[in-house]
Design a protein around this nucleic acid. Sequence first.
DNA 1: TATGAATGAGAGTTCATTCAT
DNA 2: CATGAATGAACTCTCATTCAT
Lengths: 214, 214, 214, 214
Amino acid sequence: MSAIHRTTLSGSTLTPVPESRKGIGTRKPNRGPSAGPGNRRALIAAAREVFAADGLQAPFSSIAKRAGVGQGSLYRHFPDRLSIAVAVFDENIDELEASVDRPEATLDDLFDAIIEQAAVSTALIDLIWENRHDARVAHFTQRLARLAESLLDREIASGRVGDHVHTSDVLLVVTMLADLTARTDAADRRTDARRARALIDLAFEPRSGAAGEE
Amino acid sequence: MSAIHRTTLSGSTLTPVPESRKGIGTRKPNRGPSAGPGNRRALIAAAREVFAADGLQAPFSSIAKRAGVGQGSLYRHFPDRLSIAVAVFDENIDELEASVDRPEATLDDLFDAIIEQAAVSTALIDLIWENRHDARVAHFTQRLARLAESLLDREIASGRVGDHVHTSDVLLVVTMLADLTARTDAADRRTDARRARALIDLAFEPRSGAAGEE
Amino acid sequence: MSAIHRTTLSGSTLTPVPESRKGIGTRKPNRGPSAGPGNRRALIAAAREVFAADGLQAPFSSIAKRAGVGQGSLYRHFPDRLSIAVAVFDENIDELEASVDRPEATLDDLFDAIIEQAAVSTALIDLIWENRHDARVAHFTQRLARLAESLLDREIASGRVGDHVHTSDVLLVVTMLADLTARTDAADRRTDARRARALIDLAFEPRSGAAGEE
Amino acid sequence: MSAIHRTTLSGSTLTPVPESRKGIGTRKPNRGPSAGPGNRRALIAAAREVFAADGLQAPFSSIAKRAGVGQGSLYRHFPDRLSIAVAVFDENIDELEASVDRPEATLDDLFDAIIEQAAVSTALIDLIWENRHDARVAHFTQRLARLAESLLDREIASGRVGDHVHTSDVLLVVTMLADLTARTDAADRRTDARRARALIDLAFEPRSGAAGEE
DNA sequence: TATGAATGAGAGTTCATTCAT
DNA sequence: CATGAATGAACTCTCATTCAT
């Protein structure tokens, strides 16, 4: 009965959205301004789940519903799709930094983390690349770049990666990897990811002819 | 209170005659069945443009409109989104084969051709990967694979590519490349593509241990 | 070639902003949630009229239009045809009970009331019989049965109806009568109904062999 | 995938219509004028099946499809819904006459035959009563009346039916019975029909006070 | 400030009817 | 005269956004 409007081509319906038909007219009491921060967190969490399950084009209202929050509040906190998407992905980068910003972390760790976030990453990638020029987005392209750069420097210094590799290469590869993993369904994911990683390793390894770093 | 929908049979169980159909419609003349093939071609062309401009989720009706064809005809020729997408991409693969199926063609030519088709390729990729298991799609995954395979064999034989590379690697790379190019907007496209190609070359080149270089 | 549907997020994966919504719309002001109950009543009244005039298959949207209510509100209150039909018919049964649930009421009163509701009853009957097994419908089959039963008991006790008549007979007769009256157009309605009632009287009257009349 | 347009309230999908997607463009050869009568017969048979399976509001085109005939031919033979419905029901009355127009036939036989035709009879009844005043329909109201009359006369003469019963009563009863049977689903059909028949018998039996015939 | 109902434009799909072949 | 593709209006249902409470 639902899902008629869904496109024929994408059919992800992971979490079937509670469908809380609690009868019309039972209105949650206005909890007042103090609910603000809590609502914001709930909305971000809900958006993450909804985007993961239904993609970036999921009904905006379903985010509010899943967060247990009024539509109005959603609009207050996040006036458009991009703003909530940015909030979600900001958290994602937080995670990324948390798991990668250690002295002993390697590029491989970054790739692992990216693959880990695959489901949400489809959206991430779509977002990053499509809105590359939006101010709100630019800032986390930079965060990602910073991350990539520090990892890369270390890897090159340690000789595990050739100095022909630039930060932009890493970002390129992150993009591709995220994309690839996100598209692939669970069954093939591991295989495809491994294959891609192998290619990346080959491309990144120090080149024989090069003197490296003296 | 008066009967708004009078029916053909005058009883309410029967199909109401749409109010507007009674009027003197200024409808495009029925060009007859001979319009069929032309319509089909127009639809595919329109779909290509529409998908390229607005993505795979562009209003289905806009395809009909751009093709200058009735909605019904669109549905007759292509009962769902996938079927017209397949038609478009079939043509794409035709082009691909045409430009790559020569004895002297290289993998680089394939990559060039893919990048050339970038705009439409977003959709292509979305399609290929999301409907990987649909019979209609499977067949051109195969066409693509065949293409990749013959090119790869030749490249390996000529020593330009290492024999550690498999057809599936080529397909992976094609996917990633198409995706990347499609997302990138015109300005950065050339730069990004060149960078990605460079990485691919590194990953594909014959490995030192092999008989390749000395 | 130019982007017809620019999206909120500026990327093609996101929801396009409908061209028209940008313009200065002359849309009816949002009267707020307080309009709810009024809307609901208006919708039921409109549905009654529309169903009566055009049958159960009248355009669903025409109900909203006649009620002066947005389509969305119609769907919020009544997610499908059956639910609004049930609401209408529930009111009908209310009326029926109001006019028949008196100590001095007779089966004839019930029949009169049914005939009175004839126009809406076509739909009623179609509904009751076609969705006999739907939970929402079952409940008012029961209300009707209860009504019929209490009337019947009284009639039999008073000797006006034979005890060979069961509640199910009354329901059968109610169905048939409603159907008949609904189909008949105004001119013949009175005649046909009278004739049918006469037959019913004959079928229901106490049988000679029974203890009824000495 | 289909059936979206179907009303929520009616869900009869007995015969799922072959769905002969024989590819677009394979056109049956024009068999010339000689196909006329055969087509007509095929159309009537198809209409009977389609109406029985999907009701009177079944897609007009599905009749042509099931008959294996072009839409144009359908329109040529039967310019509107009523005309083909009339043709179908004419055949029905033929059958009725065939099975009832014997000296030893009784009203019960008529009722049996009507019940037998139940599936198609829904439509029949809808038609007869809604278009009672259309010239094309009037004629078979008459045929039916003639049938009823001759049976009734015989029954009254033989004393099995009271002379308080008129032809119009029989027609009324036929209508009601057909309607009832048509609506009822297979499981309850027998029970309901029996119950109704019992009531009819009571209503039709010779009345005690009446002197009968003599 | 939070809530969620109200609003209506639009997208997808069906189907009556026409008409070139 | 048969065929069946073409046409497009109509109908259903969805969802972004506003706004009274």
